[in-house]
């Protein structure tokens, strides 16, 4: 973390002195996280491309106000997440649409899976999953769930870092992650059963 911070400080200092190559390094280092968040929150490709640029232009403008209380990548991740939130808010798209009935039905599916004792079959199905199927099922999750799953499993960020990006308390964050994984797992198992696998 300390090494990260000193590298961040050097880069930020160079950018503030007018070195555009240093900002290029920041873009290259953090675009993976930025693109990952944008792709999970936003569906339209053109909007994704515009937002990716907007995020870095905002980061450039606000770089002088960065206080090094977190990693630079986390700070840029926060800008990305908030930019996407604002965009979705303008388009009146909900980032999370949970109804209690839905939650109950997930529990029922899970219990049914357990009750039937088909776990070996289910596990076999899971082992057979190709990443395209999982990717398309992740696409069907609400934007917030998609983002949390990708930050935790793809970007391998800690709860603390994800909490900083999304401004969610750790307990809420874990709870959302549990629900997201459960919904994903149940959707996968449900679909495969329907196809009589």
């Amino acid at each position: 973390m300390r090494q990260d911070q000193s590298t961040d400080k050097k880069l930020v200092k160079k950018v503030l002195e007018g070195n555009s190559n240093a900002f290029k390094t920041i873009v290259v280092n953090t675009q993976g996280l930025v693109v990952q968040i944008i792709y999970k929150m936003i569906k339209n490709q053109e909007d994704r491309e515009d937002l990716a640029q907007e995020v870095f232009l905002k980061a450039y403008d606000k770089l002088g106000s960065f206080k090094f209380n977190s990693k630079l990548s986390t700070w840029i991740g926060t800008i990305t997440y908030n930019t996407c939130l604002n965009f979705l808010e303008k388009k009146k798209i909900l980032i999370l649409n949970i109804d209690e009935d839905g939650l109950e039905s997930w529990d029922l599916i899970d219990r049914k899976v357990l009750g039937n004792s088909n776990s070996q079959v289910d596990s076999h199905i899971l082992r057979k999953e190709k990443h395209q199927i999982i990717a398309s099922e992740i696409e069907n999750l609400p934007p917030l769930y998609k983002t949390l799953i990708s930050l935790y499993h793809n970007q391998e960020l800690s709860y603390k870092e994800i909490g900083e990006i999304t401004s969610l308390p750790e307990g809420t964050l874990k709870n959302y992650l549990y629900r997201a994984r459960k919904q994903l797992k149940n959707n996968l198992l449900g679909k495969y059963k329907r196809e009589d696998l």
């Binding site: 999982i134 992740i138 793809n154």
Partner: peptide, 10 residues
């Protein structure tokens, strides 16, 4: 399986 999904790219 989630980790094996390739990262999206512009």
């Amino acid at each position: 399986s989630i980790k094996s999904i390739p990262d999206p790219a512009l």
